[in-house]
Design a protein around this nucleic acid. Sequence first.
RNA 1: GGUCCCGUAGCUCAACCGGAUAGAGCAUCUGCCUUCUAAGCAGAGGGUUACAGGUUCGAGUCCUGUCGGGAUCGCCA
Length: 578
Amino acid sequence: MSSLSQNLSKIFGEAFTALGLPAALGAVRVSDRPDLAQFQCNGAMSAAKQAGKNPRAVAQDVLDALEGHAAFSKLEIAGPGFINIILDDAYIAAHLQVLGADEQFGVAPEGAGQKIVLDYGGPNIAKAMHVGHLRSSIIGDCLRRIYTFAGYDTIGDVHMGDWGTPMGMILSELTLMGHTGPVTMELLAEIYPRASASCKEDEARMALARAATKALQDGDPEATARWREFIEVSIAGMKANFDALGVHFDEWKGESDAHPFIESMITDYKARALAVESDGALVVNVAEPGDKKEIPPLILLKSDGAVLYGTTDLATIIDRIQAHNPVKIIYCVDQRQFLHFEQVFRAARKGGMVRDGRPELVFAGFGTMNGTDGKPFKTRAGGVMRLEDLIAMGLEKARARLEEADIAADLAPEEREDIAQKVAIAAIKFADLQNPRHSDYIFDLDRMISFEGKTGPYLLYQAVRIKSLLRKAGLGDIAAAPLKQSILILDDVVRPLALLLAEFPDHFQLALENFTPHVLCEYVYRLAQAFSSFYGSCHILSEPDEAVRAVRLALCAMTYRQIEAVMALIGVQIPERM
RNA sequence: GGUCCCGUAGCUCAACCGGAUAGAGCAUCUGCCUUCUAAGCAGAGGGUUACAGGUUCGAGUCCUGUCGGGAUCGCCA
């Protein structure tokens, strides 16, 4: 199973091969000029360049080789040597037939039997989750869903920040306060900023924090007991946020879980002279001859003997390899940590954890979320917006929108609340995921929750309209079942939708290879638009011609299933009505 | 200062290996609810892809330079 363009690329590739040309040049893609063709092949121009021939002549040779092929209704050469392709409707229909019966919509289970670890979320102990955690959480969760869809056995790890100096700051603050009673999230939220601030301005205070950090990392029983206590209360808070977002993790590990691997790792690096002393610290030199820029060494131990996040990140790789032996480890973290992970990855290769590129260490960095002023996102008061506040604002807006709409008035309160939640989450997730992962983006709350145009709620709305239509046609269950329609007759009304449905594997593949959810967002939006256009151009239920009506309903069902599937990849659920 | 990323419509952003007439959304304007949900649809206007060169059949995309913005550059994460 595959996409139309993949199948056509194969046909063209064979034609190119028959002419003694590289099969790869036969690549066929969806046409840039829908007014001229459905698909195009540009390979004749490249081939002609390499062979020093006339591109149109090469294109003609290709067409001659394909003469009489049943897939094509029209093949023609245009411009300098483009080959324009229009398919035979029966060929499209047959393809759609297979696609519609496939649970995977043509996506091959390439990852079967292979494991992938994804590192995302990254919340910190004792700190309220804020908007900075939003991207990591939803992009990482989306990538996990994408890889799962491709057949991989995925392990999502939240990788909490539970081991660094902040832990020492809190521990020492509690000691200074003489606090012995139970620790609550409120208490932690109150003392952490205070401790952090005083450590920043007071070196002596910082020394206390460092000492406490060291004590914890050395296994001091009292420090450990207390630390466990505030980890527990923190996790409860994190889970509330992740549950609200519908973000899932398979493992709730943290930096501290790397601890058991650190000592032997350091001993090993030292024994092999990979780690050396420098200015009192223990470092791994990771600079390589071809470097344009000086890559600083990775510090394993600070001069006071404490470990850093680079140490735990490196040791975590050992943990993950031992536990899962993954083919890839994907880090969904802030783009600004690029250099850090470059250092860690190099150290991992140097240490032999990565051999022959396995596991492949992938830095899937994401850009900063900025406010409408272009600067890092802040609340109106200038503070960091808490994640739960952001979700609450989206929810409030969704409720208000439901109030306005008469349709929701007759629904039970529970259903309306459920709809409001789904709308809010769809708005938040789509607003984020539709941006290219690696670039910064302007986070505009008003735009995101306007629910108009290219938004999550628009997609939900289109999906719900299809569902409602199918229900009225008495086909409510077909939406969940593979397409059974035996003969598809295409006409100008349904053909664009049919061709778009067949594109899915192409877009999925791009998202998978490049770790780019926005490609799927773009596709599902186009699909919803194409459906809406189709929906507006003809009346389906009152269509007198039974065969035409059946085809249109079949396309509706298929479109619904595909929108639902892509939305599920994005991590969004579709309500029954809205 | 070194390195990397970015600069596309009034605003926010797309554009797969270099492909044809650079696409969406918002905003503006014009139509469309007495048949399937108007959170919608159809259409219009809006561009020297920062600037200057270069490579070639073809450049938003590749190369060089200039200007502007951002990130980062060993004991925080």
